[in-house]
């Protein structure tokens, strides 16, 4: 078998998709943090979970390991790191476009208050869903409302468009 080049290894790792959003690569999701190849060809991939209890993480590890093995990598180590904590700001522009194309509203930029909170600052209480300007992925109207901040996976919220009446999901900011 041909030994893959470090560049090819990085490409293979970057093409592995999220098990629950299969149109989104782990690289575009911001979960793939680092791919390192040493001189002996040993591959070390670093990933980070989206949420503490994200059950997809094991699937991601397995998918990465399988893809790299198929590409000819003999020694693959998948490391999981918690810090720095994942943020939706790490989703790439290509990832945001892929979400939109597949009917899921991408997250907005994490606001200054939330960024401050992630560093240990005060976390403001929200007693009503914030009047967020979230665009409907079907008709592009911003006249949408939040149905529930918890959706089919930890990272998604449920919304509804008040113009075209379609319900849709949004990757919520974290």
């Amino acid at each position: 078998m041909i030994v893959p080049t470090p560049q090819r290894i990085r490409e293979v790792a970057a093409e592995v998709v999220d098990p629950e959003l299969p149109f989104l690569t782990l690289a575009d999701l911001g979960v793939l943090r680092e791919v390192a190849v040493d001189t002996a060809g040993r591959v070390s991939v670093t990933i980070t979970p989206t949420y503490s209890g994200c059950p997809a993480l094991v699937e991601m590890r397995a998918a990465l390991r399988d893809a790299l093995a198929d590409a000819g990598c003999v020694s693959v180590e998948i490391r999981t790191v918690l810090s720095p904590a994942w943020t939706t700001d790490w989703i790439s522009d290509r990832g945001r476009q892929a979400l939109l194309t597949n009917g899921i509203a991408p997250p907005r930029a994490v606001g200054p208050a939330a960024r401050e909170a992630a560093r240990g600052g005060p976390v403001p209480l929200q007693l009503t869903p914030p009047p967020a300007l979230v665009r409907c992925p079907q008709c592009a109207s911003t006249n949408t409302e939040e149905l529930s901040r918890f959706g089919a996976t930890a990272c998604r919220a449920l919304r509804r468009c008040l113009d075209c009446r379609e319900p849709f999901e949004q990757v919520k900011e974290i």
Binding site: Y51, S83, A118
Partner: peptide, 19 residues
């Protein structure tokens, strides 16, 4: 590290219960 991650999650939990 657990705390930095957990804070983001708990903000959502508290808002949900508060609402």
């Amino acid at each position: 590290a657990v705390a930095a991650k957990g804070v983001k999650e708990l903000g959502y939990h508290r808002d949900h219960a508060a609402q």
